[in-house]
């Protein structure tokens, strides 16, 4: 079988990208190698760790278990797509404040999982925060601080939204 390439159009962090990829190209490799967005991490490549978590149409998914061709026309948000106007996303701020990482390699995936949660559920319970990151391993063992960051992020997210609403209203 030849190496036939498909042209795939993806909207990544709001920008349209036309990629020529083999069907076997995962979204993860497409992001990291074809678009050089290396914030999304490759760890297990088998859906067993969560480091490659991105939002596809707003839902957290493992980009290592998605074919790029299967994402034709879909909107993908990666860690590089968070934050507005040079400001960190509230979840990112919360991670720094709570020291919710050590080596930082799982961090983009953790942040994206929580972003997916807070977009759908702005006032989650502690249990919902925990469940949102059950699919993200952290080998350094920062879990307790990640939960803490999730709690802080709920507050920061609300404040940031209020500020944006004021701007919009103004």
């Amino acid at each position: 079988m030849g190496r036939h390439r498909h042209t795939v159009t993806l909207t990544i962090n709001g920008e349209t990208h036309d990629l020529a990829v083999e069907p076997r190209r995962t979204l993860l490799d497409a992001l990291r190698d074809d678009v050089s967005l290396t914030g999304t991490k490759k760890v297990c490549d088998m859906g067993n760790c969560g480091a490659c978590t991105v939002l596809v149409e707003g839902q957290a998914m493992y980009s290592c278990l998605l074919l790029a061709v299967d994402c034709q026309g879909l909107s993908v948000t990666t860690i590089e797509g968070l934050g507005h106007d040079g400001q960190l996303d509230p979840i990112q701020r919360a991670f720094i404040e709570a020291d919710a990482f050590q080596c930082g390699f799982c961090t983009p995936g953790q942040v994206m999982s929580l972003r997916g949660l807070l977009d759908a559920t702005p006032s989650p319970s502690d249990e919902q925060i925990e469940r949102a990151v059950t699919g993200n391993l952290c080998r350094c063992g920062a879990y307790l601080h990640i939960i803490d960051a999730g709690r802080r992020a709920v507050v920061l997210d609300r404040e940031a939204k209020e500020v944006r609403d004021v701007h919009v209203a103004g």
Partner: peptide, 9 residues
């Protein structure tokens, strides 16, 4: 079963 990311897919 699995994780939120897998359940979403």
């Amino acid at each position: 079963a699995a994780t939120p990311q897998l359940r979403n897919r």
